[in-house]
């Protein structure tokens, strides 16, 4: 192991250190957090050979320019920010995604605007070294907790990671000629999101329930890691007054007082007072986290059985990928 640094030469729109969620403190008002696109987070970690999913950088809509003075082994997954690699004394070229990339000391990576997807994951072999707070290295920016000083990264920040020993001698750029296709990017619009009914869905006017299940909704720009604001037909819940604060989960669709749905994401508070009209199934949460402002979605009700089967199917694909990546690393 050798200590290594990365420096943010130009900060992106909203980049934070994310890792596994903080599961055990939800009853104290602490949001679970963690990488919003769990599938890309795991893939990027596997590509760099991390046995466990370790802390990564999660960039949103516009990425950062990062210097790697000590080199590193990285992998990029999720949103396509058309990253470029600049090596000392050479002109820039596209940084390959979905595969491990060995960066020699002095390399610079430059991430631009997301052309597809919303969140781009950059994993490093050894993981980003930030303190564990309440059982996780993830940043909960809203509560100024965990990650790098509890906040989003800024120009000038310097982060540390431990370069695994087999990587320490490398001073040349290398990337294999294989890559893993991004699985969580919406391929066509509107992107269907499957959901289970919420307790308030039966209270919706019949016409509005039909609207909810047949009309398009658009992601609004006032969306963040807490939730995605959706614009479309306004839905009405007769008799909805002030409600008590009750549990929610990532994927819960709350109905805001103005009749628009709010899709809760990783950093949403564990309880909330708005009616819950539906819950996006776990298997579709990663793609939901990759929707960017302006993207359209539709909602489709499925059974609990279908939700369970879909998650199992997704898990099997992940397991097969894990085995294949291990083989490729050896070969």
């Amino acid at each position: 192991m050798r200590p290594a640094r990365l420096q943010i030469l130009r900060g992106g729109l909203h980049t934070s250190v994310q890792a596994t969620p903080r599961l055990q403190y939800r009853h104290l008002g602490v949001a679970p957090g963690g990488a919003a696109d769990r599938v890309s987070f795991q893939l990027a970690n596997q590509l760099v050979g991390n046995a466990e999913p370790l802390a990564v950088l999660e960039m949103t809509l516009l990425g950062d320019e990062i210097a790697w003075p000590d080199g590193g082994l990285i992998a990029v997954a999720g949103a396509d920010m058309k990253p470029e690699l600049l090596l000392p004394g050479e002109s820039g070229f596209p940084l390959p995604q979905g595969r491990p990339v060995v960066l020699p000391p002095g390399a610079v990576t430059r991430f631009g605007t997301a052309v597809s997807g919303c969140r781009c994951i950059v994993a490093v072999a050894g993981g980003i070294d930030v303190p564990v707070v309440l059982g996780s290295r993830s940043t909960l920016v809203r509560s100024r907790l965990g990650g790098f000083a509890g906040r989003a990264l800024q120009t000038g920040d310097e982060l540390h990671f431990e370069l695994p020993s087999q990587q320490s001698a490398s001073d040349i750029y290398f990337a294999p000629n294989w890559s893993v296709r991004q699985q969580t990017l919406p391929r066509s619009f509107p992107q269907p999101l499957r959901c289970l009914p919420g307790e308030a869905s039966s209270g919706l006017l019949q016409k509005d329930l039909l609207d909810f299940l047949s009309q398009r909704f658009w992601m609004q720009s006032e969306s963040d890691r807490m939730g995605a604001r959706l614009d479309g037909p306004r839905l009405h819940l007769p008799g909805a007054g002030e409600r008590t604060s009750e549990p929610t989960a990532p994927g819960t669709l709350q109905l805001l007082p103005d009749g628009s749905p709010l899709l809760l994401l990783a950093d949403a508070a564990p309880t909330g007072g708005y009616p819950r009209i539906a819950h996006v199934i776990s298997a579709d949460l990663a793609v939901a986290a990759q929707l960017k402002p302006g993207d359209s979605v539709t909602f489709q009700m499925v059974s609990l059985r279908e939700a369970e089967l879909e998650l199992r199917r997704e898990h099997l694909v992940q397991q097969q990928l894990t085995a294949m990546i291990r083989l490729l690393h050896k070969g």
């Binding site: 599961l23 055990q24 403190y25 939800r26 009853h27 008590t244 604060s245 009750e246 549990p247 929610t248 989960a249 564990p270 309880t271 776990s282 609990l304 939700a307 369970e308 998650l311 199992r312 898990h315």
Partner: peptide
């Protein structure tokens, strides 16, 4: 619920009139 160990249960969260029990659907069915 918090005092017993149910494999696959991740967290229990009280609300004003309800309680959520979060679990890993890959380890346990509803």
């Amino acid at each position: 619920i918090s005092s017993v160990e149910i494999p696959g249960v991740l967290a229990a969260v009280p609300g004003f009139t309800s309680l959520a029990v979060h679990f890993d659907p890959l380890r346990l069915t509803a």
